[in-house]
């Protein structure tokens, strides 16, 4: 139990640090609001010319939720990257902790608080917009609950993905190339750039099974009711399976890394 306390403490610490950057939050919210509006206008124009199978209200809600939880996807801990690059990771290696768990807690704090701080004002703003521009209510109350649970699982997934990136950083020492590539993949396959609901049906069958679709796409579909409640167990199971696979993969990579470790900078 006391072990858990250490990880919780690391989580709290990173949470505190995140609270220090209030300016970044305000900037992020404004930026995401702007992107949200542009994207909504874009899809409205598309629908005006050629209506799609999904109703426009669903697509608009999809866009706002993606923008509100943007920080859950696209954020990485610069401190951690620096630690690996300069060798300060040495200190973390002489703690009686699992390094994987320690970093997982940090990453989770950053992603959770980062997205909550931004999501609250964003969703309020989106809810106040007129119908067809703003966010719609969930299809039902149970759907909201299931969607919230799914976001939780998505968060576990995305932190595991981030930790795998981190493990690779320990080999390549510079995360930028790797991150640029992975981020593009993530933003496309998670539905942030173009809602996955607008992809051709045949593609969707494959894409929705990939890990990136588990992060936000699955929760949003549960929220809008595109996926009905009876489908929820299947969705949650898929998410759970990916969480376990990604966690196991990350743990394995970290364990391997620790064996062949070289510290940078003397």
């Amino acid at each position: 139990m006391s072990r858990v306390k250490a990880y919780l403490s690391a989580f709290r610490m990173r949470w505190k640090m995140e609270l220090q950057y209030r300016g970044a939050v305000i900037g992020g919210v404004l930026c995401q609001m702007f992107f949200g509006l542009i994207l909504v206008a874009l899809y409205r124009a598309l629908y005006a010319g050629k209506p799609q199978a999904r109703p426009i209200e669903d697509v608009v809600t999809y866009v706002w939720l993606q923008q509100a939880f943007f920080r859950m996807l696209l954020s990485s801990d610069g401190d951690l990257m620096d630690k690996i690059r300069t060798g300060s990771i040495a200190y973390d290696l002489c703690r009686p902790l699992s390094l994987y768990g320690y970093y997982y807690a940090r990453i989770m704090a950053q992603k959770l608080l980062g997205s909550l701080l931004r999501a609250a004002p964003m969703l309020l703003f989106a809810a106040l917009l007129p119908r067809g521009w703003g966010m719609a209510l969930p299809s039902s109350f149970p759907a909201l609950l299931v969607a919230a649970l799914a976001v939780g699982l998505g968060l576990l997934c995305v932190c595991a993905i981030e930790n795998i990136t981190m493990a690779f950083t320990m080999r390549t020492l510079d995360s930028r190339g790797m991150q640029a590539m992975l981020n593009l993949l993530m933003m496309t396959l998670s539905g942030n750039i173009l809602p996955l609901t607008l992809f051709p049906d045949a593609w969707q069958r494959v894409i929705t099974l990939l890990p990136y679709a588990q992060l936000l796409d699955a929760p949003i579909r549960l929220y809008t009711g595109e996926w009905a409640l009876w489908q929820a167990p299947r969705v949650l199971l898929t998410q759970g399976a990916w969480t376990i696979i990604l966690l196991a993969l990350g743990l394995m990579l970290w364990r391997k890394n620790q064996k062949r470790l070289v510290l940078q900078g003397g």
Partner: peptide, 17 residues
């Protein structure tokens, strides 16, 4: 780097139980 050193110490306290 960005937090008071007392907070870092509190974390170390929990890490070393």
């Amino acid at each position: 780097w960005d937090v008071p050193i007392a907070d870092s110490y509190a974390l170390l306290k929990d890490i070393y139980q």
